[in-house]
Amino acid sequence: MNNDLPISLLIACFVGAVMLLLPHISPRRYFFAITVPSAFRSSNGGRASLRRYYAAVVCSVVIAVVLLVRIDQWSGALLPVVAMLAPAMLGMLAFLVERNQVAKASPPVGDVRVVELSSDDDHLPRWIALVLPPFVCPVAAAAWLRERWNEIPARFPIHWNGHNVADRWTDKTPRAVYGPLLFGGGMILVLILLTLAMFYGSRRGRQRNAIVKMMVAAIYFVALLFSAISILPVAPFSPSLLLVPGLLFPALLIVWVIRVLRDPSMPVDQTPDNCWYLGSIYVNANDPAIFVQKRIGFGYTINMGNRLAWLLMGGFVAAIVALVLTLPR
């Protein structure tokens, strides 16, 4: 039996489980990314949609398992990856089919907006200063590496395979040693700028502060992760240990997102149904918001109908490409 089969099966089942949760990790105002009256979820039409969707996701997991077991002996890496992701692809297809059904079956919901007439300027919350301490991590790691420069081997590993065996090495150069720290520091900066853009480019409300808190947590995670990666050449710990925070952080994030979405007092950013494509792409040239709340999951997405959003996205992609170039090869 292929050694990778158990982990491939586990990933396929995990993806399937996430897809099963998808209709439930959205703001309660939306069902399959369509605005519905609060009673629609428990109506016959709503329950039938959920049943059909669950059946489709379970079928996609079965298909993935059968494919993975059957292609166990096959050569090539692409097919197992496609099989592992089958629950995501087929599940998304089923989600979109049900989205159309819900749009037809749900009675129309009015689009009433209520706004406070406040002339106050937008002020960032005071706790936003918490984005600054994470910079200490890469700086401290850089200082530590500089002090132990002589202890760093002439060649050290920079990549490990699934069995925790190093499969790529690099020479000891300043770029190779400090590259992950530069990347981490750059990522922190990009995340801070993204947080500011999100704050000033979206509607006011508690949901906005919740997203900013999530971004601050992500900044701490990035700072700690890249600082830990950078000290690997001289630190006596197994790189596989990094998987623990790498899995723990997203897991905690999912738990937190579900808690936030279950909070009935959490406001929802209102957007018209007809400006959403495939349930996750928002295009509305009349809406001045650059960032709007997503309908699937919890977070913000950009308004593709806003030219500023395209500029921001271009800048973000350019920054990421520039940062990737700093990494050792």
């Binding site: 009015g110 689009d111 009433v112 907006r113 209520v114 706004v115 406070e116 007439l117 406040s118 018209p272």
Partner: peptide, 8 residues
């Protein structure tokens, strides 16, 4: 604060 309400 005073509020306004509009129905789109």
């Amino acid at each position: 604060l005073a509020k306004i309400r509009i129905d789109l």
